[in-house]
Design a protein around this nucleic acid. Sequence first.
DNA 1: GTGGTCTAGACCACT
DNA 2: GTGGTCTAGACCACG
Lengths: 129, 129, 129, 129
Amino acid sequence: MFQLDIRSRVPIYEQLVEKFKDLIINEVLKADEQLPSVRQMAKDLTINPNTIQKAYRELEHQGYIYSVPGKGSFVTPPSEINKGEKVKKMKQELIKLISEAIFLGVQKEEIVSLIEEAERSVKGGEQVD
Amino acid sequence: MFQLDIRSRVPIYEQLVEKFKDLIINEVLKADEQLPSVRQMAKDLTINPNTIQKAYRELEHQGYIYSVPGKGSFVTPPSEINKGEKVKKMKQELIKLISEAIFLGVQKEEIVSLIEEAERSVKGGEQVD
Amino acid sequence: MFQLDIRSRVPIYEQLVEKFKDLIINEVLKADEQLPSVRQMAKDLTINPNTIQKAYRELEHQGYIYSVPGKGSFVTPPSEINKGEKVKKMKQELIKLISEAIFLGVQKEEIVSLIEEAERSVKGGEQVD
Amino acid sequence: MFQLDIRSRVPIYEQLVEKFKDLIINEVLKADEQLPSVRQMAKDLTINPNTIQKAYRELEHQGYIYSVPGKGSFVTPPSEINKGEKVKKMKQELIKLISEAIFLGVQKEEIVSLIEEAERSVKGGEQVD
DNA sequence: GTGGTCTAGACCACT
DNA sequence: GTGGTCTAGACCACG
């Protein structure tokens, strides 16, 4: 379900945070839906519960979820979240990466075709549109 | 000149690497141009010389500069940069990033326009000469 | 275990890199096996941890090991090592070295026998397992 | 005439020493032949005279040439030089490099063909045999 | 416990 | 002057 790269240099808890943010922004996880419990999550991913805990804490800190002591963690309605900022960062990253690709001699047309490839892979995962 | 965020979680030497890569990609630093010496840079930025060294070394590893002990560090002419491998990695990264952007709701047309923006910034450096 | 020549003009960290590469190539160190920790190694060899770090880092750069912060450093499975580029460089180096050997009067047959000797040492590591 | 790699990490003077050693061992430079003067050499290669000086000093130290104050530097007859050692080192280097190539998946036959390629390039430079 | 970053300061070889 | 190596010792984040 969650594809984590255990070897990556970016911390596991941060990978989790990013995944959850995406799922919440795109309403795969619906508003006020309950998140899996820390223990369940830890067992499923065979990861230390502390790591899940840390991810949840970070998500709460950033406003993507809210915790009800004794009940669990729930998704903050996306309408209350500032998604513009993430998109902006994403675009800056893209410009930088594309510049580098062009510098290395990649043709504009090739990049466009990469977009189509990426589009297919994303759309493929959804249930049509 | 170089705006470094000493508090950031991304290491100083890595920030330096990124800055220099930008300058080289946008041809602000031209082929075979000499970079500031390790010591000079360290003094200017009030940073330990070892940290600058580490940045220069990483840049050399990635093929963007070459260092000649006793002489200095210089920009690698783009024609000599090891392209094959880099391009491949670059494309994979791009697909990943574009997929995420699409997932976040960025339209295909917007991404295409980012390509043009990137193209301008890179090509802009060439005109001069 | 590791015989290092502290006086040699070739840097300690580079000697370490070569030793480890040998161990990995001859499969004394197996895929995904954990390397000694930076600190342990440093203590054993009475060498500064930074120097070990530098060696490990170089090995990671060259693709022979991967490091997971907080966990340790591990041998990269041969199947995942970036081959294309390396093989190309390797062949160029080989031609250069063989040319010099021939120039020095080494016979072609002698070199062929060296290949067999090398083959045995590499293949020898595989048998086990 | 001398192909020096100014960018290489191995010092220029050392590159010079190696080239001369090869030329002397193979009697391209004949016994007791006079070497080019430091100044001439420096002018031809557009290199600092000190660097040439250093190379000559090293060659003398290793016994490959002898200097006659006021006259110049001359080639030591190869018969008086220990060439065996160099060949031995060369073979060890070769085994190591070939092992690495095999590890990276290069086939034995490919290496043999590299030998032939190297043979041609060396023999090509000579006036037949 | 692990890898990783950074500083301070010393020393080396090369040009 | 240059890049490069090494040590000593401190600090951080991760699991």
